[in-house]
Every structure is written in structure tokens, then in C-alpha cells.
Simulated scan of single mutants.
Amino acid sequence: MGSARLVVILGLAALLPADAAPCGAQRPDGSTASKLPGMWLYVAGAAQFPQHQVEMLLIDHAFLRLEPGASGQELLISHYVAVGDQCFTNNLTYLEVTAGNATLVKDANTQKTEGMLMNMSSENLLLIQYQMQKERTYLGQYLYARSLSISTADKEEFEQHAECLGLRAEQIVYAPWKTEVCQVKVAKGSDSPHAEPVAAVTASPAPATPWPGSAGN
């Protein structure tokens, strides 16, 4: 199994209907979208199936960069995921603010919904949740933050969301952030977390291999 295959997590190709918010959680509204641009660091993931947990264990660090799209109704997402000595990149997904002010993660090629953005108690946390019905139901969620220095209460909130989905504590994997394969360079004249990512070593997966952010069952 190659390194490219080992990073196929953090997303799916289809999702239950957008109004089927799991556990009754509320999604961010239109006003939230204006607070989302910038850098989001990957903190942890929770996955239902063992193969996805193994894949998460192979990730040292990852982050997202969100940028406003030309239409004003979407935020473009660039993914950076470090596995071994390679940094994998992808910019095929985006957040779309619909007429109902629901913010969704969509694939730019297929136009299919990949995940659901959920509310958290802090605007410095980003939670993407998945509940896919395909050959079998897949449950998962992934936590990002403006800073890696999140509180115990933030972790407990993430774990409560996981428990609500039926995921156990042992199905949660926290990213270690031990290497600097995918580097983060702070924008000139700024010390804010809205940094520009720089891929130290960028690798492209083999044809038909899903990018980070597209796990299958």
C-alpha cells in the first residue's frame, strides 16, 4: 500500500440529505462564513471503521487554508496532509453557503456534498462531520482549530460530538505534529494564524487515488 493511499481520510463522496443534521446539532449560518477564511490546523479525527483509524494514525499533521471564492457564496479549501516524508495537497473542495444559509463541504468536480460543518462553542474551532449512507453507513468527524493549543473543554466538546454519533473514545486519533514536512509560513507583516502553507515536499497520488479528504468504505 503506497503513501498516497494511506492519506485517504477526512472526507467522503456522498452524504445524507443536508437537513439531516446528526444529533440535532446546528450548522453555522451565513454570518459564520465571514469568520472562516484563513488557516485551520488539524487536531483530531474520529472514524467508525478500523482501516480509517489506521490511516489517521499515519498522519503526522495537516491543515486547511480557506479563501473566498469569486462568487462570494463559497470558500475554496486547500488541503495539506503530511504522511511520512511527503506532503500531499488538494484544492478540489469548497464550502458553499446555500440560500438557506447552510454551510456545506462540496467537491468541485462532482458537485457532491462531502461533509457538514457543525457549530462549536468557540469560533476558533472547526468541526466537519460525516454520516454517509452507501454500501453501509459511515460515521466520522474531524476537528480543526486556529491554534494547536486547545483547551481540555474543547477536546471534551469534540469527544461529546463523537459520542453522539455513536463513536467511542478509542476511535478518536489526535495528530502528533512531530515533523515539519508541510511547513506553515506566516504571512508577511502578520503574526496571526491566517498563515500561508508551504509544501516542503509535495507528492501527487496515482491516478484515481482519492485525495486527503475523500475516504471510502
Rank of each mutant, 00 (worst) to 15 (best):
L41T: 06
Y42H: 07
Y42E: 12
Y42W: 08
A44I: 03
G45W: 06
G45Q: 12
Q48L: 12
P50A: 06
Q51G: 00
Q51C: 06
H52I: 07
V54E: 13
E55L: 08
E55P: 01
M56E: 14
L57R: 15
L58I: 06
D60P: 05
H61G: 12
H61R: 15
F63Q: 14
F63P: 00
F63L: 10
L64Q: 14
R65H: 08
L66T: 13
S71Y: 01
S71Q: 05
G72Y: 12
Q73T: 07
Q73H: 13
L76A: 10
L76Y: 05
L76H: 14
S78M: 08
H79T: 09
Y80G: 10
Y80R: 14
Y80Q: 14
A82D: 15
V83N: 02
G84A: 09
F88L: 02
T89D: 00
N90L: 11
N91T: 09
N91S: 07
L92S: 14
L95M: 08
E96M: 12
E96C: 10
T98W: 02
G100M: 04
G100C: 07
G100Q: 12
G100L: 07
G100N: 07
N101C: 14
N101K: 13
A102C: 07
T103D: 00
V105S: 12
K106L: 14
D107I: 03
A108L: 11
N109G: 03
N109M: 10
Q111G: 09
K112R: 10
T113S: 06
E114D: 07
E114Q: 15
E114N: 14
M116K: 13
L117W: 11
M118A: 05
N119S: 13
N119E: 11
N119A: 06
M120H: 02
M120W: 00
M120S: 06
S121G: 03
S121Y: 03
S122P: 02
E123A: 06
E123N: 11
N124V: 02
L127V: 01
L127C: 10
L127P: 03
I128Q: 07
Q131Y: 02
M132G: 02
Q133F: 01
K134N: 12
R136I: 04
Y138C: 00
L139E: 04
G140C: 03
Q141N: 11
Y142N: 10
L143K: 10
A145T: 08
R146N: 04
S147A: 13
S147V: 03
S147D: 14
S147M: 05
L148E: 03
S149W: 08
S149Q: 15
S149T: 09
I150S: 00
I150T: 03
S151T: 15
S151K: 10
T152I: 09
D154H: 08
D154P: 00
E156K: 15
E156P: 01
F158G: 13
Q160R: 08
Q160K: 15
A162R: 09
A162W: 01
E163D: 06
C164K: 13
L165W: 01
A169T: 05
I172R: 15
V173S: 05
V173A: 01
V173Y: 09
A175W: 03
P176L: 06
W177P: 02
